[in-house]
Design a protein around this nucleic acid. Structure first.
Lengths: 221, 221
DNA sequence: CCATTACAGACCGACTGTCTGTCGGTTATA
DNA sequence: TATAACCGACAGACAGTCGGTCTGTAATGG
């Protein structure tokens, strides 16, 4: 049967289906026919709304990353929060979907880190590497003025921190057991203190007071 | 016509052809037919030597990375070289093909960083992230004993340095003009000094004395 | 104010070309 | 004579195309 909907609604239907399928079977492992039958539309319809399969992926990434960066930006601009805590919360806002119980794009991040999704992984990595440091660096500069941090290279330090964290806490990249993971986190915090020129132990105490068992432990599902 | 060769020779012929084609057109953009006609063999022959197209890529990566890590390891074990210089030379040994004018696997690294080669990029990244720090960390420990370095986390620091350098100096990941690139390198050196606990400016001077215009400037082709 | 026409754009599904991987058979070598 | 290298026709699956259909809406005319 033939059901006509508004373009925007149909597009989102397709994206939702693709989101779930890519998560389950990966981008290469998902055929356009899979998407077609899941949404219940014909081939032509899909290609009426998207110009290619990769175009679907790009739209999915766009939908996800704009939410992610937007959430982080919102927190970054709230100058009432102390700098260290603000950085932490901005980072956390990015990991956990869009913050408010968003229904879509929710699963994407959990399934990105898979060999089949290498291209998607790379594209998101690029967005993070280029998008996150500009958001967090102003907070670091604020911290420098307050005397909490001390570095001549706030942007580059932040960049290094983001890239490292994003790579090392990727299950597929570096396999770790629970204990090794914990020691990595400790070392990471110490290294961040050195890079940002924070007092030794200052980040550790804030993290414990703030997050407890959360913090940087994403991916322990 | 039908030419019979030893398995090893044929395998390398196929790998050499694939190396060049993947470099030119990417993994996805290269069809098995491209490889077939380039080598001058039939489909069955290719699948007699390799079980899949991805298997070819894996063999290519294996051939390349074993040379790369081997060259780095050789330098790392030469304790006659001062620690800082040894780290530098070990890193340089990895970037520049296999060191001695090897004919094969020569091009791979120059073309890895392309959207089409996301999977290959990811696999090599994984090898670097997991393979390089174990080679370089002993040198850092040596440096700590000598008082050149000072860090409670030599492995994790090295890991952070490697991951960052490998990502940031990737043309596809972060687009940079010449000037920005230079400032990134300066910041990078300063941050490495902080992470390893080296004296401020100590790495800079060694790099200048040692490499001049080389050092970390891979990819300025 | 209703009926008719015109149009845009959402939708369809058969079809095409291409690709990877298979398989039974053939030729060379030890 | 057995093993291994080699061949190429073929099957199955896939992404993307294209001519054509349906539907809601807006303009036109009585």
């Amino acid at each position: 049967m033939r059901i006509v909907k508004e373009a925007e609604a149909r597009r989102n239907e397709i994206l939702d289906a693709a989101d779930e399928l890519f998560g389950q079977k990966g981008f290469d492992g998902t055929s356009t026919n899979d998407i077609l039958s899941k949404v219940g539309i014909a081939r032509g319809t899909l290609y009426h709304h998207f110009k290619s399969k990769e175009d679907i992926m790009d739209a999915l990434i766009e939908r996800y990353s704009s939410k992610m960066l937007g959430a982080a930006q919102a927190i970054a601009l709230d100058t009432t929060i102390p700098v260290v805590e603000r950085i932490l919360r901005a980072v956390m806002a990015m990991n956990i979907s869009s913050g408010n119980g968003g229904e879509s794009s929710r699963e994407i991040m959990e399934h990105i880190h898979r060999p089949q999704n290498a291209l998607m992984h790379q594209k998101i990595q690029k967005i993070i590497v280029n998008g996150v440091p500009p958001i967090l660096t102003p907070i670091v500069r604020e911290g420098i003025q307050q005397g909490v941090f001390n570095t001549p290279y706030p942007y580059e330090s932040m960049e290094m921190i983001i890239i490292y964290a994003n790579t090392i806490f990727d299950e597929e990249m570096v396999e770790m057991t629970g204990e090794v993971r914990m020691s990595r986190i400790l070392a990471f915090i110490a290294n961040v203190e050195r890079l940002l020129g924070a007092e030794v132990g200052s980040l550790m105490s804030v993290m414990q007071a703030f997050g407890g068992d959360r913090g940087d432990e994403r991916g322990n599902e």
